[in-house]
Design a protein around this nucleic acid. Structure first.
Length: 435
DNA sequence: TGAAATGTTGGGGCG
DNA sequence: ACGCCCCAACATTTC
């Protein structure tokens, strides 16, 4: 006789508290076994075997497991292709239902569609819920029903729609008694899934109220601790969006807008999945990118000779993080000064960023290149010196990552600013000449 | 969530 | 006293 149980599948919602899908699974009353799958389709694409994001997930999995063991249950952690894993689980257990939270990326949608199909034929319900955003898919659309493609009216409609009910947490503490009771399972080590420890540490999310309250004043200065540092937690769901929006509504409109940008780009990716490989504004794909590989290598390694650009890239390479203001500067530099395809920069960020999120990364790169929806116009070219003067006037950030600029091995600028600016304007103008 | 070029204004030096 | 010029400061336009 096979054991009957309901599965809750953790994906990018690695927490017990305020987790909608988990809440719904526990509320169903059937014994719930939580599951995590190290997806070989995803892991196989990661070139760096000490990828910090895998380390972050593994660390979070161990935390979750610890909490579940305390509640008398465990976390089942498997390694493979999700569909294969579910086929195997279906042989092993009598699965009454599978619960999970919505995932909106094109590949996740395909993965879930294939699983829906398999489970349907086994007569197993697959129930999924909105959890990672306040408003998803077509919940915030124009009066004519079409999706917004401009941020400001989207954000207005978003703010108009939200109520207290949308940020109420899904409290599952009292429901944990419905977890499937078992002695702890073994959790595979990093090396068992083909990875190794990067040495990075992963502090739990900490919501610093002072930082959030002053966000609009300090956010642009990379040498300050002026940003929340919560992006990676939001990425993997170790913090709940409802908690953050509740705080943002109360304390800081600018920070709220950042959370709305996140949902805006998720909504755009959902409705326009072609942006993964193409410019939102099609005529920008006419553009004659120079794509000089040696210059790209210098951008990647932080040796362009522009201190603010190099500091940003060195911070990224060393930590897997870059301050948002500096992300805009390096993106503008790559696409406009060097005329390198935004997709090259996007791919590099995708490999390096601990908080990498397809929708935001793609949306913001297209924004920088000028080819995205509601993007910066092409002639908005950041002057690295001017940006430094405004946002790192004492060179504290530069000094932290590039050190002494007078060292004889610090490179000469890869291109002269004024000349590169003129070249950029010409190339873009040429590509955008009417049809 | 730019920067540079160009235009306008007004105070002060000076003949 | 007055007009003229210079130029900083600010505003507007352009890319």
């Amino acid at each position: 006789m096979k054991t009957s149980l309901t599965l809750f599948w953790f994906r990018r919602d690695l927490r017990l508290h305020d987790n909608r899908g988990l809440f719904e699974a526990l509320k169903s009353g059937n014994p719930v076994l939580p599951l995590f799958i190290f997806d070989t389709d995803i892991l196989g694409k990661l070139p760096d075997k000490s990828d910090k994001r895998v380390g972050f997930i593994h660390h979070s999995i161990l935390q979750l497991h610890g909490e579940l063991v305390k509640a008398g249950s465990s976390l089942l952690v498997l390694h493979g292709k999700p569909l294969d894993v579910f086929q195997q689980l279906n042989r092993q257990y009598n699965i009454t239902a599978v619960y999970a939270n919505h995932d909106y990326e094109p590949e996740a949608i395909n993965r879930d569609a294939a699983l829906t199909d398999f489970l349907y034929h086994q007569h197993i319900p697959f129930k999924t819920f909105k959890d990672q955003v306040i408003f998803e898919k077509s919940e915030v659309v124009k009066p004519d029903g079409n999706p917004y493609t401009v941020f400001t009216p989207y954000s207005k409609a978003w703010k108009h729609k939200i109520t207290e009910a949308d940020v109420q947490p899904f409290q599952s503490e009292d429901l944990l008694k419905h977890l499937y009771k078992t002695s702890p399972f073994n959790i595979p080590s990093l090396s068992a899934i083909g990875f190794q420890d990067s040495g990075a540490s992963f502090p739990p999310p900490f919501i610093d109220q002072n930082i959030i309250r002053q966000y609009h004043e300090t956010r642009d200065f990379p040498s300050l601790k002026g940003t929340s540092g919560l992006s990676v937690h939001l990425r993997f769901g170790t913090v709940s969006i409802r908690t953050l929006v509740q705080i943002a509504l109360r304390w800081n409109e600018s920070w709220l807008n950042e959370l709305i940008w996140r949902e805006f780009f998720m909504m755009i990716l959902y409705h326009f999945p072609q942006v993964v490989s193409r410019s939102f504004k099609g005529q920008y794909d006419q553009l004659k990118w120079r794509n000089n590989e040696e210059e790209f290598r210098r951008w990647c390694s932080g040796t362009t000779g522009y201190p603010i650009v190099d500091a940003g890239m060195r911070e990224l390479n060393a930590t897997g993080y870059m301050h948002n203001r500096v992300r805009m500067i390096v993106a503008s530099f790559l696409t406009k000064h060097l005329l390198i395809d935004w997709r090259w920069g996007e791919s590099y960020f995708a490999v390096k960023l601990l908080d990498y999120e397809l929708s935001s990364n793609n949306g913001n790169w297209q924004w920088s290149a000028g080819c995205g929806c509601d993007a910066a116009p092409y002639f908005r070219i950041f002057n690295p010196a001017e940006q430094t003067r405004k946002f790192d006037p004492e060179g504290l950030y530069i000094n932290q990552w590039v050190g002494n600029l007078h060292k004889k091995d610090y490179p000469q600028p890869i291109v002269e600013h004024q000349w590169a600016r003129e070249r950029c304007l010409q190339v873009f103008k040429e590509a955008l000449k009417k049809e």
